[in-house]
């Protein structure tokens, strides 16, 4: 339980920080870097979510299929 909560907070914090970097870069007229930062942040968060989903599917498998 505890670990799930921290991972959610981690993803939220990554989102906030990436958004701040995006606005800073965009204000200074570096739109291309800003979009790259957002894309990379998105991919990192995607990998975090995929790891969690993988854990979920393993759990389901162990419960329903291979008892």
């Amino acid at each position: 339980m505890n670990e799930d909560v921290t991972s959610i907070f981690q993803i939220a914090a990554v989102g906030i920080i990436v958004a701040m970097i995006h606005t800073v870069l965009k204000q200074m007229g570096k739109e291309d870097y800003a979009s790259w930062v957002t894309l990379i942040g998105f991919i990192v968060v995607l990998f975090m979510v995929i790891r969690k989903l993988d854990q979920l599917f393993q759990e389901i498998k162990t419960i329903f299929l291979f008892q």
């Binding site: 981690q10 914090a13 920080i17 970097i21």
Partner: peptide, 14 residues
Amino acid sequence: KSLGALSAALVVIL
């Protein structure tokens, strides 16, 4: 000035 601190915070959180 803001980018250095922000990217450091990102690395810490990751």
